[in-house]
Design a protein around this nucleic acid. Sequence first.
DNA 1: AGTACGAATTAGAATAATTCTAAGAAGCCA
DNA 2: TGGCTTCTTAGAATTATTCTAATTCGTACT
Lengths: 145, 145
Amino acid sequence: MSHSPNAEALTQRLADSGLRATPQREVVYDVLLQKRDHPTADEVFARVKSEMPTISLATVYNCLETLVQCDLVRAVNFERGPTRYCPNLRPHAHFHDEKTGRTYDIELPPAILQTVNTVLPSGFDASSVEITFRGQASAKVANRE
Amino acid sequence: MSHSPNAEALTQRLADSGLRATPQREVVYDVLLQKRDHPTADEVFARVKSEMPTISLATVYNCLETLVQCDLVRAVNFERGPTRYCPNLRPHAHFHDEKTGRTYDIELPPAILQTVNTVLPSGFDASSVEITFRGQASAKVANRE
DNA sequence: AGTACGAATTAGAATAATTCTAAGAAGCCA
DNA sequence: TGGCTTCTTAGAATTATTCTAATTCGTACT
Ligand SMILES: [Mn+2]
Ligand SMILES: [Mn+2]
Ligand SMILES: [Zn+2]
Ligand SMILES: [Zn+2]
């Protein structure tokens, strides 16, 4: 059938949480995988509408939250800007380009994460760490996309 | 005369930016220094009102923004919660306790910051890094305050 | 196939934090 | 003191997100 290649993994993860793989959830997830530029909910909405013109913004928010809950997508925040969504599940930091507003994934070797955790005094038990860079990316990097 | 001990540094920093040291700015800054628990604007407003009952919330927001601009205070965000304010100017990470909602400062040795910066591929020029832990702090830590 | 019933979607209202607007008060200096 | 600029203030506006309540959908019996 006309399943996208990722529908299977999605269906599985949703089922694990007792949820259904609906067309809306599939198209939202596909959109995130197709252009991994950390879009906002509004941007996802715009992209999804071209494939499914009847979808509502509320549903996009619902689907995104569901995907985050199932650990298929990460929600990413910079200051008080709108939440952005990232389907990269590997441990990674984010680099926010102040000039362009673009967001880049920065892979994080496990050794670095371990090192970072050494700063925690005893009594602090961290379940997650988030590392965010802010600065400027060169044109070369921007074109690499 | 009845200057708080920090009024001097504040006045200097403000003057450096061509701004005045007003009573509102002084009391907002004092409140931040007196209880370094990363209060929100609303919390700052409540604390300031007891000293200066006529101050407005808009002014608290204005003062906080001014202090951030002058690099006397850091704005700290967790997910989409209200912005919190921190007068600790040393390089530090934040630990957000998921159970209590409390925020702790985690000192960051310069060596760690350098190590973290090594994850950036060439072409990425970071002007700042932010490290945020999420997890649980022990009762011992909570009492240490 | 038809019915029941929880899950999911939808449009629009509501909310929360923050920013904006416009008017007045205060500070500074000639 | 007058003139100019900065600062404060109340309230309106904005923005992103969540909530509400009504439909629609999907699945599981019968
Ligand atoms: Mn930006
Ligand atoms: Mn929390
Ligand atoms: Zn990412
Ligand atoms: Zn802090």
